[in-house]
Design a protein around this nucleic acid. Structure first.
Lengths: 258, 258
DNA sequence: CGAGATTTTGAAGGCACTCAAATACCGTGG
DNA sequence: CCACGGTATTTGAGTGCCTTCAAAATCTCG
């Protein structure tokens, strides 16, 4: 894979999911200074409250999760980080991290010089808004998680979590048939869905019994996607995948047919 | 108030909470074309899925809430909109709204031409990143709501919701002693916290009995802030209020004292 | 003053939790 | 290649927080 030669292609490909990049944009990204760096499973990749250290990072391989801890010690995952996802591009405009990111598997990160990326984003506004856009997609996903945890029962929550996971994997190009690498423990799934690991276990088995999925860690297969989505009440609209379908020209000032 | 003369001051003041604006920045904002517009209570100000209509809007007076609806019909609030808050600046980089915004009271909005704002944000990167920063603060608040709904019990959830509300009101300059305008119905509070209105009612009474708050709709008073925060497990760090305290110079390339 | 919306209260039930123990799995080292 | 220890999964029984259902009381506002 070309990524092996220059992992910055991962970033280009990520942004191109929702933004049309021209050759200058791509060249600018590909000329960013970078390094690779590996971390062991369970390593903290970002710690809540910590200021930035001059690097913006991207997941090259492996999986991570974003989480916060309540004062009572309870942990809540607020996001999953897949290969190709940015870890901490918020640093471009925020001074400190507001959540933790931990490695769910052994991971390799791409480290980009923060100031170089910031300069690129300012000089080529198309790149800047592409990155901004990605952070807003994350925000949309956060909202969906509030809905998921607040207003769905345990089985739907799980089904929704899995649906979103699979969809994000598909987007990132990791689809191999209906089988997905899914390395999270049931404890972690519970922390993502606001459930206990015990109940996650039971509901997971129900989804299997229903014929919606099969699950042999670390692999999860979607046996009946329609049914899974139906149980989840899953509607992918919130992932904003239709950005590229819209007209290139800015439709501002168009008369508004109310 | 000066806002009466030019409501764009509201936007300047909002951004200045977390960003140092120079005179050019302020002048640029204050010269944006705008209109005011009023809406009745319960009006939809933004509808999920709708494309933009050439306007970016700011709440001038009144209160609103952001929400999504699950396929089973359950509603979940994902944010409260206070006077001074931007409604839909995401439109600057996203094609369609991913959640609804509804008026909780009669409201007055400030409508800014989207393209003019976009141009300003590009020409004066300091303004652009100030707006980007605000959208990231919202994302941080979304994360906290996931934690709130997912990992706190009913009483803590309510206390946390109230704590955040009061803190945001303080920030926006709406503090009058310990009493706050708080126009939400218990049904809406329930939809914000993932509870039923019946249980909200019971927990609200418990907080009153504990001496943490008093509540006569539409006014809520914080009787014992320390206790309320303690019940909530509230830590304001996620609101990123210390942005201005950090050094003006970009600390990149500073040796990292690990 | 009346109608609808909202709040309040009570009683009963269920979904998901807690606690606990058995089983299975995995990576490591001998 | 197997033994071993720690981690993760699975299962069961009992409990409780919050929901549901329902009705009364109160508020709001035209």
């Amino acid at each position: 894979m070309l990524d092996e030669i220059c992992p910055l292609n991962l970033l280009v490909r990520k942004l191109e999911i929702r933004t049309r990049l021209n050759n200058d944009d791509k060249a600018g990204i590909l000329s960013l200074p970078y390094k690779r760096r590996a971390y062991e499973r369970t390593s903290y990749l970002v710690r809540e409250g910590e200021g930035h250290h001059g690097l913006c990072r991207l997941m090259v391989s492996g999986f991570g999760y974003r989480h916060r801890v309540a004062s009572n010690g309870n942990r809540q995952l607020v996001g999953i980080v897949l290969p190709g996802d940015a870890l901490d591009f918020q640093q471009l405009v925020l001074d400190r991290a507001d959540h933790n990111i931990q490695a769910a598997t052994r991971v390799v990160l791409l480290e980009i010089n923060r100031l170089a990326l910031k300069t690129l984003a300012a000089d080529q506004p198309n790149v800047g808004s592409a990155i901004w856009r990605e952070t807003l997609i994350d925000a949309s996903i956060f909202q969906e998680w509030i809905l998921n945890v607040g207003r769905r029962n345990a089985k739907s929550r799980l089904a929704h979590f899995i649906s979103e996971y699979a969809m994000k994997m598909d987007i990132s190009g990791f689809r191999g048939g209906e089988q997905y690498e899914f390395p999270l423990t049931q404890e972690q799934i519970g922390d993502a869905t606001g459930l206990t690991s015990v109940h996650v276990n039971r509901m997971l088995h129900e989804l299997v019994r229903d014929g919606a999925i099969t699950y042999f860690r670390p692999y999860l297969t979607i046996a009946d996607r329609a049914q899974l989505y139906q149980i989840a009440g899953f509607n992918k609209q919130y992932l904003h995948l239709d950005q590229l379908a819209s007209p290139a020209a800015d439709p501002d000032f168009m008369p508004n047919p109310k």
